[in-house]
Write a protein that binds this DNA or RNA. Sequence first.
RNA 1: GGGGUUGUAGCUCAGCUGGUUUAGAGCGUCUGCCUGUCACGCAGAAGGUCGCGGGUUCGAGCCCCGUCAAUCCCGCCA
Length: 602
Amino acid sequence: MGAKIQSVFCRPQTKGENMLSLKSKYRTHTCGELSAKNVGETVMLSGWVHRKRDHGSLLFIDLRDNYGITQIVIDGGNDDLERVRPESVLQVTGKVVARDASQVNEKIPTGEIEISVESWKVLTNADVLPFQVFGDDDTVSEDLRLKYRYIDLRRDSLHNNILTRNRIMKFLRDKMWDLGFSEFQTPILTVSSPEGARDYIVPSRNHHGMFYALPQAPQQFKQLIQIAGFDRYFQIAPCFRDEDLRADRLLEFYQLDLEMSFVDLRDIQAVGNEVMPELIKKFVPDAIVDPNIPHIPFDEAMLKYGSDKPDLRNPILISDVTEIFRGSDFGIFANAIESGSVVRAIPAPNSADKPRSWFDKLGEYAVKELGLGGLGYIIFADEAKGPVAKKLDADRIEKLHKIAGDNSLLFFVCDKAESAAKAAGKLRIKLGEDLGLVNPHEFRFCWIEDFPMYELNEETGAIDFGHNPFSLPKGELDGDPLKIKANQFDMVLNGAEICSGGLRNYNPETMVRAFAIAGYGPEVVKEKFGGMYAAFQYGAPPHGGCAFGIDRLVSIILGTNNLREVVLFPTNQRGQDLMLGAPREVTEQQLREVHIQVRKKN
RNA sequence: GGGGUUGUAGCUCAGCUGGUUUAGAGCGUCUGCCUGUCACGCAGAAGGUCGCGGGUUCGAGCCCCGUCAAUCCCGCCA
């Protein structure tokens, strides 16, 4: 608790070389700047009543503003001030006096002094609060906090989060300028695109029955910026997606969006290498940042980590042990392998002595959360133990023992390749957490590359684009489309995807052929992406780029997994603004103007 | 669209197997006392449609059904 109060004076403030004075008719100083040097001065402060301590004829008030907290003393007491509620706004004039050595409050930087009040004025009164600002209690329910966001934002942790975000934005913008990128703005009212997420649509008044869409990303515009010859562009861009929310997903969010001409993949990734480790070092004081950022092919990531966004802090590596189980007496796996399943092994280091209850819990997790039939395992203590071990011969056991290591466990997941990889990946994460293998002070980046250009739609059997349809395929487009890789990458930090990008398909013929494989005829390309397709006819430079998710980066830096903790005015999980009441109905007149009739709810 | 969890005072929660009367605690609020607190202290008070609707029962905060809301996850989504 003390540490939390302490952070009031550690607020990451905006500071400029030509700061405007903070003095005004309301204050000569802020609540965070007076010290022993000011003793004897008469000062005026304005701020919120953070806390009162009433000793009868002696009253202490902690006065708080954006910059800190200063203690106000009213000697002799005062009935009116004693009744002022917390969070009322007060203006006080008084003398700066030194505190006795025994009364210095080391938790706040103004703790050597206090203000002996000579006159005061209540600027505004606060009603009884829906929740307390003081104490920074983070157990208050989120809907209440969102409804009174302006009060929540006064609380120490959230206030600091937003100020830190402010400084991160400044850092990113300065850095991009420093690296030679130009900052442009692209339209917010734009065209609906058929690929990817659902668009937010905006009805047009002047064009009957037509709609704008809010951009999911400035993808087409930033490519057109390249065709227009601007070479290196960046933007801190708002993006909108009309999809269901999660704790780590917002309906509007910000990306550091960039695009470059005449580059290869490594040139784009150089931006990430340049900016991201420095960002973490600058904003996380005790961060351990590994400057080595490995490049991992997608297929390898899925096999070794069971995920395309691996947390490299977790030392567990998954192995494919299909061949060890093939033809073994462990019938469940051996039979499944014959019908096309694979077996993945997940080692749990130094846990051979775990109690029975630990296994039961993991088994329950595997069945309930991962949808597995059960969780097979072998314990490698003095000898190999467990129901699976009994069915395997010494040779197979020895091979598995090598993978697991001594005093360890080996868990097995048997399923079709993709499902097995995913389940093994989740188990890897779970084991990492449960065994405390992940160091929260560590920051490990990696690049995931060679994503498949296309994937099979399980339901329809059709070939779909795997990720970004504008990506440049690697190599030839002949042969099995599912084997074609894309010039595309993600940047991953501690198990979170923080960036996605790649080289773009800038050749109109290749573009038509790439779309044809996914079942879109040339007429569709010309219709849906007509503007861009036309632009490619007039000399497009080879280009590529990427976009970093700013909200996610800020949340990783601040160590929260809830994006609403790093956004000023977020919606709730159903996309509602509980404070201002959005979305809401509009008038019949407004609907008529945009030619819209609302359907009855069935 | 589907699943899990939750809903009791302004806030955070407890409330046992359905039966102790007037549903409790901490914080907050209000009143009184207090000159050195900084999570001040002490004494007292107010504050409840147990989310809402229905059902089972002699009896429901607790069980059942429905419904609404919140949250987390899956689907969806870079």
